[in-house]
């Protein structure tokens, strides 16, 4: 039975259900046990499953991931948490050089089924070090799934699928969506494909490729432009690695125009890769250049409210991009 849940409650429910189902699942990270997590994503788990399985780790991102990797080698399915994407730096080697490559460098001798939950994104007044997006550091790496759900339904289903998946997974949770994204979420456990983008809204005039919090902004912009007769198809990537090329290419073959919308800074962001894919695989189908609406190339995200507003992509900026693309 489905009921309306917030994105964060969907995540919390997924963790509860997977820990109940499989006692190999354990979580570790900063402040997530006794405190239930700084956003309360892990509320109630410590009380229900105890310190053995819900471990407040030392304040050290490297060993949070390193310990999870090691435990996965002896049969556990750890779900470590990086409290803020901004602080993932010390864990970059464990994630990219260890988790993502352990299977490869041992030719399948070791597998590393860990799901790293990371809180990311701006728009909440977090300032320079509580707002960043660094999904593409990781999406660049073969061997680790990078997920960025945008709805409560996907948050639950993709987290459950990630925990059950044999690959290492980075699960990026957007903090702005935690309490603003609400939707129907089935009570029972379910999984959502980790290989497919989702068409959120069909349209014939242009394709908007996006993900994360920006998927909700793109939907708002598309609804408004619909009233003006422009029907945009919104493709929510959901998985940034590997990318579901087919869904993107199929959509652009139909609409012949593409706008890429992301919160990340522009240079070498996801948009660059999407544009390159379309260049290679749908060049003849394009009636216009591929445009990008993204964060500006400045350190994300300066604090003062007007500065943050300047950084963040909003509905108006997406609409301006859609108008430009439609007019070409």
């Amino acid at each position: 039975m489905a009921r309306t849940l917030t994105y964060i409650d969907a995540i919390n429910e997924a963790l509860h259900q997977e820990m109940e189902r499989d006692d190999r699942v354990c979580i570790l990270g900063e402040d997530l046990g006794l405190g239930g997590g700084v956003f309360k994503a892990t509320a109630g788990l410590y009380q229900k499953f105890g310190e053995e399985r819900v471990l407040d780790s030392p304040l050290a991102e490297g060993i949070i991931i390193g310990a999870a990797i090691g435990a996965s080698l002896v049969g556990f399915r750890p779900v470590p948490e990086i409290q803020f994407a901004d602080f993932i730096g010390d864990a970059v080697d464990p994630i990219l050089q260890q988790a993502a490559k352990l299977r490869y460098r041992s030719s399948g001798g070791f597998t590393c089924p860990i799901t790293i939950r990371v809180c990311w994104g701006g728009g909440t007044g977090g300032g320079l070090y509580h707002s960043q997006e660094n999904t593409t550091w990781f999406a660049h790496e073969p061997g680790i799934r990078v997920l960025a759900p945008s709805t409560a339904y996907d948050a639950k289903g993709m987290l459950i699928a990630a925990i059950r998946d044999e690959n290492p997974v980075l699960f990026f949770e957007h903090k702005k969506l935690y309490r603003t994204a609400k939707g129907d979420v089935p009570e029972e456990p379910y999984t959502v494909s980790l290989d497919n983008a989702e068409v959120r809204r069909p349209g014939r005039d242009m394709t908007i490729v996006t993900y994360g919090y920006m998927a909700s902004i793109a939907m708002e912009a598309a609804e408004e432009m619909s009233k003006r007769g422009v029907e945009a198809e919104v493709v929510d990537l959901r998985t940034l690695n590997p990318i579901d090329k087919k869904t993107i290419v199929d959509s652009v073959r139909k609409t012949n125009r593409c706008l890429i919308v992301h919160e990340d800074t522009k240079t070498l962001g996801m948009g660059a890769e999407i544009a390159a894919i379309l260049n290679e695989e749908a060049f003849d189908d394009l009636d216009a250049p591929i445009y990008r609406v993204t964060g500006p190339d400045i350190p994300p995200v300066p604090f003062s409210p007007p500065l943050e507003k300047f950084f963040m992509v909003d509905k108006e900026k997406v609409i301006a991009g859609m108008e430009k693309l439609a007019a070409y």
């Binding site: 310990a67 990797i69 090691g70 996965s72 556990f76 260890q98």
Partner: peptide
């Protein structure tokens, strides 16, 4: 890096 992974293995085995 091997020290961290080894430590994680030890954590798992102890558990």
């Amino acid at each position: 890096a091997q020290l961290m992974i080894g430590t994680g293995v030890a954590w798992g085995m102890k558990r």
